[in-house]
């Protein structure tokens, strides 16, 4: 059978115009337009572009949800088996649109999607988890390479074939870990890798670490005697009994607890929920992780303005980076709203 594919492009690749036409509303044309010709050729008869959706980059950016809904409904009308957007190369708005629509179509209709972007296109980082993003050049000069890779990856998905690694297929890592079987045991592979590393030869890790954000350092506190200081910990300090059931590892939530009038975290009143270290010492005296006692002294002395009456806590034991980020953002919002000037974050 020939699979039915709907293709998304912007006003420029549709030949409608450049920046001056960037606010055109989404429209649907039957068959191929522009890069869809290359896509059709790359499908080699196994699939066919049955319709092309065109939308201005600005219009999309201003109406993301409505336009995504509209496009998804059109894709459904055309009874598509798969959806392709772009390539968007290094075009910021177009790339973001490609990623957003692929994710929306995939989510709403459950059909395979693929786009192609320059890895530094903001759309790549934003949407690589929700769709396959083929690595493309930074300009339309890379059309010739990007389109066959998109076609091949979409065909594989539509046929239900196994998808290879990001390197094999040419897509940007989605951050998914998959178990693999190797002939050699881990110890041997590790030694092989070490030898390569010692020789200065290229080697590839089997367990890539996530890339963490960097933020610019905040300015120093000018007047500590007026500052409101808050305590946050990833060491799992909670009121005794762990009322919010924060998991001992892979935490799904964080806690917010009132320490108004609490001068010292006493045994039997506070404990740790953390399952990744020996809890004995923290359970005996939780101040060893969350230094409420000395901060109360410091507050009394007037060295700081005040200790914020709420502290935030979670467990940093195998907790997903995505969850940590979510917790951090929410804590940050609440701390900011409470007028906190600085945070002491303790980790175990």
């Amino acid at each position: 059978m020939t699979y039915r594919v709907v293709h998304y492009i912007n006003q420029f690749f549709a030949g409608i115009g450049g920046e001056e036409k960037a606010d055109i509303k989404p429209e649907v044309r039957e068959g191929v337009v522009g890069p869809g010709m290359a896509l059709n050729a790359a499908f080699k008869g196994e699939a066919e572009v049955v319709a092309t959706v065109i939308c201005g980059d600005n219009y999309f950016a201003d109406n993301i949800d409505d336009t995504s809904d509209f496009i998804a409904s059109k894709v459904k009308e055309f009874n598509a088996d798969g959806f392709v957007a772009g390539p968007g190369f290094n075009a910021g708005r177009y790339g973001t649109a490609c990623g957003a629509i692929c994710c929306a179509v995939g989510e709403k209709l459950g059909i395979p999607t693929v786009t192609a972007l320059y890895p530094e296109n903001p759309g790549a980082e934003m949407y690589k988890k929700g769709t396959y993003v083929i690595v493309a050049a930074d300009s339309a000069r890379g059309m010739g390479k990007a389109v066959p890779a998109m076609a091949s990856l979409l065909l594989k998905q539509m046929k239900g074939e196994a998808i290879g690694t990001p390197d094999e297929e040419g897509y940007i890592e989605k951050g998914v870990r998959i178990n693999m079987f190797y002939e050699k045991v881990g110890a041997e592979r590790a030694i092989d890798m070490l030898i390569k590393k010692l020789k200065g030869e290229p080697f590839k890790t089997e367990y890539k670490m996530p890339v963490f954000d960097r933020v610019d350092p905040r300015p120093a506190i000018k007047d500590m005697s007026k500052a409101k200081i808050a305590l946050v910990t990833s060491g799992g300090i909670v009121p005794f009994g762990n009322p919010d059931h924060i998991a001992a590892s892979s935490a799904q939530n964080f806690g917010e607890y009132d320490i108004t009038g609490v001068m010292d975290l006493k045994e039997g009143e506070y404990q740790t929920a953390h399952g990744g270290y020996d809890q004995t010492y923290a359970n005996q005296d939780a101040d060893r992780v969350l230094p409420v006692d000395v901060l109360r002294d410091i507050e009394k002395e007037g060295r700081i303005g005040s200790l914020h009456h709420l502290f935030y806590t979670t467990v940093g034991n195998g907790t997903a980076v995505a969850n940590s980020k979510k917790f951090g953002v929410e804590m940050g919002k609440r701390l900011k709203a409470a007028g906190v000037d600085a945070v002491i974050l303790t980790s175990t």
Binding site: G15, P35, R141
Partner: peptide, 10 residues
């Protein structure tokens, strides 16, 4: 047009 954006596409 190898970028498939212009009148000479295809």
């Amino acid at each position: 047009d190898p970028t498939y954006a212009g009148p000479l596409a295809g």
